[in-house]
Design a binder for these strands. Structure first.
Lengths: 179, 179
DNA sequence: TTGCTAACCGGGGACATAGTCCGTTACCGT
DNA sequence: ACGGTAACGGACTATGTCCCCGGTTAGCAA
């Protein structure tokens, strides 16, 4: 890949991240190109459709969250590990206004996005199962918890402090009752 | 108000409800007019701006929910009353894809919408306070619960059954621990 | 019934945006 | 250094949408 092509690719990805964070996944592609300092034709060369661009941005995010989650599978306290991972996931959703959130909600459908979604689900489910087997949380559908996280991210879009409070509420609902 | 004018007004409101439910608050106004069987000019005569239309639709919804909530203030079981009202609120949010939900999230700002929001908050807070004074739920910020309801409505957009499960999760988090 | 006028219709301008095309530029292997 | 070609720029078309406006229709009071 030629040097200028790679540079423009990175610039476009950065601009898309910002734009998606600011205006959601429906942000104007022309403006993204402008913001990246390239012409619209260049954008379309790298990302033929809007979905391609969304996928590229999402892929980075999801991979990060996946790595974090897998790392937390060894943590001492399964309940705490779950909370930490959910918090990171929600913060991502809050920051990239409805990006990860939109994905959790499957508003966007494609093979690649489905794959990313599956990856996220897999990690979340593993953390939930571990907490359940440790007797730290009640039995619950993993997908529900993920959806809930997406909902929290959406509901607390412009207030990270509120996101924390809502997460606390969720964790309270998950926690196994004291015997 | 002339008979045909009122008829068209109602038709437009119906069409707007459907369209908003289907495509969110950004639905095309021209298509709403078309769906209502009137020309676009007629729509703009009744509702000069998009906001006017959204307000009109919301006003109906919120009033209903307000009435329901006030009625439930006399119910025998405060916890159950709270659940019933939250359920109705979420279902509304689910049905009118992100309409009430968008409002709970204050995505749309106007004096009238703010008033509606306040009305909804007042009723929700009253139900929550009553449940708290009865010792049925833990202490919690009323606004957080409302936001959470909005989040659930958003997250479970196309699956009412899931909305019920998420609500159960929320209620579990609210319930006061057995002493 | 008749006439006034509110209400309606629908064409069209203005604007934003998606995506295409091709002449031009400049990177990079030799 | 140099030439082939990948990559770029930016104008252009197509599309969808908001909203206005003048001519026309039809509800309703007298």
């Amino acid at each position: 890949m030629r040097a200028d092509a790679r540079r423009n690719y990175e610039r476009l990805l950065d601009a898309a991240r910002s734009a998606f964070a600011e205006h959601g996944v429906d942000a104007s592609l022309d403006k993204i190109a402008q913001r990246a300092g390239v012409a619209s034709g260049t954008l379309y060369r790298h990302f033929p459709t809007r979905l391609d661009l969304v996928e590229a941005v999402l892929a980075g995010q999801i991979t990060e969250l996946g790595d974090l989650g897998r790392g937390l599978l060894d943590a001492a306290d399964p309940f705490d590990a779950l909370r930490t991972w959910l918090r990171a996931t929600i913060i991502h959703g809050v920051t990239y206004r409805g990006l990860a959130a939109a994905m959790m909600n499957s508003a966007i459908r494609s093979d690649l996005v489905s794959g990313l979604h599956a990856q996220l689900f897999e990690v979340g489910a593993a953390l939930l199962d571990r907490a359940w087997q440790a007797g730290a949380i009640v039995a619950v559908d993993e997908a529900d918890v993920l959806k809930m996280a997406g909902g929290i991210a959406w509901a607390a879009q412009d207030d990270p402090a509120q996101a924390d409070r809502l997460l606390a509420l969720l964790m309270n609902g998950l926690a196994a009752p004291r015997p």
